[in-house]
Design a binder for these strands. Structure first.
Length: 555
RNA sequence: AGUUUGAUAGUGUAACGGUAGCACCCCAGACUCUGACUCUGUUAGUCUAGGUUCGAAUCCUAGUCAAACUACCA
């Protein structure tokens, strides 16, 4: 509450509530996922919002699974959701399930029937849709709308006791079939589903609808601020109606605009398609905007929290530039990861005046951003792997790397002067030739030379290998859902590029799954979950900014 | 069509009747044993038209545009 940042609209509402003494100054939010899929970046920002608000105002935040549809929900999802929330750095105050309240909800429904505010309807789904009316025309009353309270009570009990087949009857709220808000035209409260529920088993064959279950669940938990996305705004009158008719704790619903991201899709349905049709390797594919995908890719939880904070919260439609997220990822990784050397596209460099069989061991700084980061040994020899793109026979202006006659610093080692190159039978460069300056030894440089370029390298005889998966954005257009045709037509064919065997410095061979490093001058990488001591695999989390690439693109 | 919500640099978000600011991106430069990081600077905005006011992004009126709603999903 003391920071300088201005308040977002939800914080303003909460601070006003506190100032007016509403709810005795208590703040209680909740995160209500349906356990029917994996969490994505949109959920992550919602988690940051709900848990963040609770923390900011010394309140509480419940985790409540909205498990009112047994057909799609599974325990597997419950576990993955809990795992993701914890990984993001949050701990819920209570773990609840809407299914905890099935009996209570049933009792509430009986109460509404007794008040003449709910009735059992025999109409089919099609008939209900047909009598619903439209945005410009009122609906019409069901012929069963005026059954007696006694009959409704009896029928509802029979529904619960399994006397009817799926879809044969429903319980509806008795509101107004001519209401301008379609959701208020006698909405369904209960439907019959003879389905096994992941928590209540076969105890129930009637299940409450979202609109009936959600608000009452909030109320039972005495949630003060029930925060959801904009599409629920039309549901608010109904949310309030149930609470008012029942005379229970008045939770209030507030809506914000979901945050969209460029170059990806966010709907569960679309993500499911990507997985099922194998456009990606699974829910945790590092290209997926899922929490598990981002984790596997190497995005730090701190970066996701910072991102959520940075983009703010409002009620207008938006599409946030992915570069904002990538900035947060780089910013955090820059401070925390060790620098290592890996050569992705190798060409051999031979130091002609360095004796064969000799080697140096350099102590290389792990992280210039961290004074306590320490050093690691890096072996050096006569033959090194360097990046093919770091040598050009005919360089353009302002090329500070290797070219005949140029000098460069080999990172943490010596300054070398390029003397030329050898080519194979096809005219391809096979070897770059250099001489080194012994007096330019890193940390002990008496050469007096200043070099414009520094390149990374890996000693040939000491090199180890690893598979590297170069990931890029999943789609080639900013907003695939808004393009003509199917969103899948816009998948980026180069979203993954596997380099089966790149050269890495020996220290890196110790990397364990989940370890994050910076491949110097190449980007941030994370050891994949499938990585083993026998077969190392690194995922590219995000590239470094590359001013030279930009320069080249311009000309 | 109706209802609801919204509209501020390319993107996201502030300014709550009194100097339109911040971050990302872009561009230019400095620094650099990462063409990274860091630092400096620059470009660029109130949907339109009226009105109220000494003064309007903010209040009022009308319009324009966008999104959501018409599931026995949540």
């Amino acid at each position: 509450m003391s920071d300088e940042r201005s308040l977002n609209f939800l914080e303003e509402i909460i601070e006003q509530d506190i100032a007016e003494g509403n709810n005795n100054g208590r703040v209680h939010t909740r995160f209500p996922p349906e356990p029917n899929g994996y969490l994505h970046i949109g959920h992550a920002t919602s988690i940051c919002l709900n848990f963040g608000l609770a923390k900011r105002y010394n309140g509480k935040c419940n985790l409540r699974f909205d498990d009112t549809n047994p057909v799609t929900e599974e325990t597997e999802y419950v576990e993955s959701i809990k795992n993701d929330i914890k990984w993001l750095g949050f701990q819920w105050d209570n773990e609840f399930y809407a299914s905890d309240y099935f009996q209570k909800l049933y009792d509430f429904a009986v109460e509404l029937i007794k008040k003449g505010l709910a009735y059992v309807d025999d109409l089919s789904a099609e008939e209900i849709a047909a009598t619903k009316g439209s945005t410009v025309a009122p609906g019409s009353d069901s012929p069963f709308r005026n059954r007696s309270i006694e009959e409704n009570l009896q029928l509802f009990e029979a529904m619960r006791d399994g006397k009817y087949r799926d879809g044969e009857k429903t319980l509806r709220a008795k509101i107004d079939m001519a209401h301008p808000n379609l959701l208020m035209r006698d909405p369904l409260m209960y439907r019959i589903k003879h389905e096994h529920h992941h928590r209540t088993g076969d105890k129930w064959c009637i299940y409450p609808m979202y609109d009936y279950a959600h608000g009452q669940s909030d109320s039972i938990e005495e949630i003060t601020h029930s925060i959801c996305t904009l599409e629920f705004i039309h549901h608010r009158p109904l949310y309030n109606w149930f609470i008012e008719q029942l005379g229970i704790f008045p939770s209030h619903q507030y809506e914000f605009a979901r945050r969209n991201l460029t170059y990806t899709v966010m709907s569960k349905r679309k993500l499911l398609q990507l997985v099922n049709e194998q456009h990606v390797a699974g829910w945790d594919d590092p290209r997926m905007p899922t929490v598990s995908g981002m984790r596997r890719r190497g995005y730090p939880a701190e970066a996701i929290r910072q991102f959520s904070d940075t983009i703010g919260i409002a009620k207008r439609e938006n599409i946030v530039d992915i570069s904002m997220l990538e900035f947060c990822v780089r910013e955090h990784l820059n401070k925390t990861t060790n620098r290592v050397m890996a050569v992705l596209d190798p060409v051999k460099l031979i130091i002609t005046n360095y004796p064969e069989g000799q080697e140096d061991i350099f102590e290389a700084e792990n992280n210039p951003e961290d004074p306590n980061g320490g050093t690691r040994p890096v072996p050096f020899s006569r033959e090194l792997w360097i990046e093919r793109e770091d040598f050009l026979e005919n360089p353009p202006k302002k090329f500070f790397r290797l070219a005949p006659g140029n000098i460069v610093r080999l990172k943490s080692a010596y300054i070398v002067k390029c003397e030329g190159c050898n080519k194979d039978a096809h005219g391809n460069i096979s070897e770059v030739l250099c001489t080194y300056l012994p007096e330019s030894k890193s940390g002990n440089d008496t050469s007096g030379l200043s070099v414009k370029g520094t390149i990374h390298w890996v000693s040939v005889p000491h090199a180890r290998t690893a598979e590297v998966r170069m990931y890029d954005r999943l789609f080639r257009v900013e907003d695939p859902s808004n393009e003509e045709g199917n969103f899948k037509d816009y998948i980026n064919p180069d979203s993954i590029n596997i380099l089966p065997s790149v050269y890495i410095e020996p220290e890196l061979a110790k990397a364990k799954p989940g370890d994050k490093v910076q491949f110097m001058r190449k980007g941030y990488f994370c050891a994949d979950t499938e990585s083993t001591a026998g077969k190392l695999i690194f995922n590219r989390t995000v590239t470094l900014k590359d001013a030279w690439a930009k320069e080249v693109r311009k000309s």
